[in-house]
Design a protein around this nucleic acid. Structure first.
Lengths: 152, 152
DNA sequence: CGATTATCAATGCAATTGCATTTATGTAGA
DNA sequence: TCTACATAAATGCAATTGCATTGATAATCG
C-alpha cells in the first residue's frame, strides 16, 4: 500500500509551479504570435507535425496521437487549416473511412513565419533564463512525469 | 546584443517537455475530478484563493492577480460559483464599483471534496514519481522561468 | 466644482471547446 | 455472406472563452 492520498509539500509546490509557469509561458507565446498577426500555437503544432511527416502526410488519428488534441478538436482544426489553404485532405487508397492530411506550400510558409516568432519566444522565455545544463535537467525531470512513462 | 532569434536545442527540448507534460497532467487531474462528479480545476483555484483569504474575502481584481484568469473569465466564473451557492458577493463600503467575494460554507465543503481528489492526483502524478530533492529542483528551476521574475 | 481620465466589473457577440452521437467504412466471427 | 462489432472522422448542440465594448463609480486636474 504505497497509496498516498495527500501529496507532500514538495509535490504541491512543484505542481503549483508547473501549472503556473506553463500557463504563463503559453500565454506569452500566444501573445507574441497574436502581435505578429499569426495563428495560435495549436496551428503550429499541427503544421509542425505535418511538415515533419513530409509528402506522405499524416492521418488525422496520427495527429491526435502526436499532439494530444481531442478527436473533434483535430477534426475542426483541420477544417480551418484547409479553409485557409494550409493543408489539403487526400483520400486514402486502402481505407475509405480516412484521409491523409498534407501540408501545402502555403502551410510550410506559415509555419516558417510562426517559427520566427515562436522560436524567439522560446529563446527569450526559456533559453535565456537557464543554462544548457539546467535546461537538460528540466527536460530529464519533466520526462519522468510523462504519461505513459515512456515515448515522447 | 544578447538577442537570440533561434533557441538552442536544449531550450526547445525543455519547452516541448514543459508544454506536453503540463497539458497531460492537467488533463489527468481534470479527468479525475470529472470522474468524481466534481467541478473543474478552475473552480478549485478560485475556491482555494478565497478560502485562504478568509472572512474578509477578495475583490475580483485580486483574484485576477492571483490566478492569471482573464477579467471576463473571473466575472463569469464567479457568476457560476454564485449560482451554485459556493460564493457570495458583498457590496464594498468604500468603493461603489466593486464587490467582495466570500466563500460560503458550501464552497468550503466543495473545495474540501475537490482536494480529496485533486490532492491524490498530485501525489500520484508528481509526488510518486520524483524524490523530494528532485521536486525541489523542479520548483527551483521552474521558479526561474516566472514572469515577472519574482513574486509567486 | 466640472470635465477628463482611470479603474472595476459585466456583457453582446463570435469563435472555440466539450460531449454525445452520427455517418461511413472496415474487420471478424457464425 | 450476413451480422455484430470496431475504427475513422464529422457534427449538432450546449458550455466556455476571447474580444471589444459598456456601464458605473473613482480619482485627477484645471
Amino acid at each position: 500500500m504505497t497509496e498516498k492520498a495527500t501529496p507532500s509539500p514538495e509535490a504541491i509546490k512543484a505542481w503549483a509551479r508547473l501549472m503556473r509557469v506553463s500557463r504563463q509561458l503559453v500565454e506569452r507565446a500566444e501573445d507574441a504570435l497574436k502581435e505578429g498577426g499569426l495563428p495560435p500555437l495549436a496551428w503550429y503544432d499541427v503544421l509542425h507535425e505535418l511538415a515533419e511527416a513530409g509528402e506522405g502526410g499524416l492521418r488525422p488519428f496520427q495527429l491526435i496521437e502526436r499532439t494530444l488534441f481531442a478527436q473533434y478538436n483535430i477534426s475542426r482544426l483541420l477544417a480551418r487549416l484547409e479553409a485557409d489553404g494550409l493543408v489539403e485532405k487526400l483520400p486514402v487508397a486502402d481505407d475509405g473511412r480516412g484521409q491523409t492530411i498534407r501540408v501545402t506550400a502555403k502551410g510550410r510558409e506559415t509555419r516558417r513565419r510562426m517559427w520566427a516568432v515562436y522560436g524567439r519566444s522560446i529563446a527569450e522565455l526559456v533559453g535565456a533564463r537557464l543554462s544548457p545544463d539546467e535546461l537538460n535537467m528540466v527536460s530529464a525531470l519533466l520526462g519522468r512525469l510523462r504519461h505513459p512513462p515512456a515515448g515522447d
